[in-house]
Simulated assay, not measured.
Amino acid sequence: MPMITLQLSRPLDADTRLAVTRAVTDLTAEVLGKKRELTALALSHVEHWSVGAEGVGGSLTAFHLDVRVTAGTNTRTEKSAYIYAVWQSLDELLGPLHPASYIIVTDIAADSWGYAGETQELRHVRARLAG
């Protein structure tokens, strides 16, 4: 975990797509402390993107990044640092960025999601019983 969805207002070439994927994955591991090997990222281009009912185009890139994590596993400070670091990284790789681009850290209850057929809550309980 976690699951990251990144939508962009413009398509990327293969090299930039790889650089963005690596940067976001690395920051998720480094700043939020998530396991890199379990971090999934879906990246897509949204053809019709608008802000204030006006199409986004020209030299600005708009984006929406949503990273879903288990509730209670990150502090406010970590989330704030993550949002800052991701913005800086995407600005470097894709900039200039449209100011109405969003990074959202979504906290999901441990009993409401999981992977490989098991909830995060079950994993947590199993680890506590084993430890």
Results as ranks from 00 to 15, higher is better:
residue 2 P to R: 02
residue 5 T to Y: 10
residue 6 L to P: 00
residue 6 L to E: 01
residue 9 S to Y: 06
residue 10 R to A: 05
residue 11 P to R: 10
residue 11 P to I: 06
residue 11 P to T: 12
residue 12 L to R: 03
residue 12 L to Y: 06
residue 12 L to A: 01
residue 17 R to Q: 14
residue 17 R to G: 03
residue 18 L to Q: 14
residue 18 L to N: 10
residue 19 A to G: 04
residue 21 T to S: 15
residue 22 R to A: 11
residue 23 A to Q: 10
residue 23 A to K: 07
residue 23 A to M: 08
residue 23 A to N: 04
residue 23 A to S: 15
residue 24 V to M: 02
residue 24 V to T: 07
residue 25 T to A: 10
residue 25 T to C: 07
residue 25 T to Y: 03
residue 26 D to T: 13
residue 27 L to I: 04
residue 27 L to S: 03
residue 29 A to Y: 08
residue 29 A to K: 09
residue 33 G to A: 10
residue 34 K to L: 07
residue 35 K to Y: 05
residue 35 K to F: 06
residue 36 R to E: 11
residue 37 E to T: 09
residue 38 L to R: 15
residue 39 T to R: 00
residue 39 T to P: 00
residue 39 T to Y: 03
residue 40 A to S: 13
residue 41 L to W: 04
residue 41 L to M: 11
residue 43 L to N: 00
residue 43 L to P: 04
residue 45 H to D: 13
residue 46 V to I: 13
residue 46 V to F: 05
residue 47 E to I: 07
residue 48 H to V: 12
residue 48 H to I: 08
residue 49 W to T: 09
residue 50 S to D: 07
residue 51 V to M: 06
residue 51 V to Y: 01
residue 53 A to Y: 06
residue 54 E to Y: 08
residue 54 E to G: 05
residue 55 G to P: 06
residue 56 V to Q: 05
residue 57 G to V: 00
residue 57 G to D: 12
residue 58 G to P: 02
residue 58 G to T: 08
residue 59 S to P: 09
residue 59 S to I: 12
residue 60 L to A: 11
residue 60 L to E: 12
residue 61 T to V: 14
residue 62 A to R: 03
residue 63 F to N: 05
residue 67 V to Q: 01
residue 68 R to D: 10
residue 68 R to L: 10
residue 69 V to G: 00
residue 70 T to K: 01
residue 71 A to V: 06
residue 71 A to Q: 14
residue 73 T to M: 02
residue 74 N to M: 01
residue 75 T to E: 09
residue 75 T to Q: 08
residue 75 T to A: 04
residue 76 R to M: 10
residue 77 T to P: 02
residue 78 E to V: 07
residue 78 E to D: 10
residue 78 E to F: 03
residue 81 A to G: 11
residue 82 Y to R: 00
residue 82 Y to K: 00
residue 82 Y to N: 01
residue 82 Y to W: 10
residue 83 I to V: 15
residue 83 I to S: 10
residue 83 I to L: 14
residue 84 Y to H: 14
residue 85 A to F: 02
residue 87 W to N: 13
residue 88 Q to E: 15
residue 88 Q to D: 12
residue 89 S to Q: 06
residue 89 S to H: 04
residue 91 D to I: 08
residue 92 E to A: 13
residue 93 L to S: 01
residue 94 L to F: 00
residue 95 G to I: 05
residue 95 G to R: 07
residue 98 H to M: 05
residue 98 H to A: 06
residue 98 H to R: 07
residue 100 A to V: 11
residue 101 S to G: 04
residue 102 Y to A: 04
residue 103 I to H: 00
residue 103 I to P: 05
residue 103 I to K: 03
residue 105 V to T: 11
residue 106 T to G: 04
residue 106 T to C: 11
residue 107 D to N: 14
residue 109 A to D: 14
residue 110 A to R: 06
residue 110 A to Y: 03
residue 110 A to M: 09
residue 111 D to L: 05
residue 113 W to G: 01
residue 113 W to I: 01
residue 114 G to C: 07
residue 114 G to T: 01
residue 115 Y to W: 13
residue 115 Y to K: 08
residue 116 A to K: 09
residue 116 A to E: 13
residue 117 G to A: 09
residue 117 G to Y: 03
residue 118 E to C: 06
residue 118 E to S: 13
residue 118 E to I: 09
residue 119 T to S: 15
residue 121 E to W: 08
residue 122 L to C: 09
residue 124 H to D: 15
residue 125 V to R: 14
residue 126 R to K: 13
residue 127 A to R: 15
residue 128 R to E: 15
residue 128 R to S: 11
residue 129 L to Q: 11
residue 129 L to D: 09
residue 129 L to W: 11
residue 131 G to L: 10
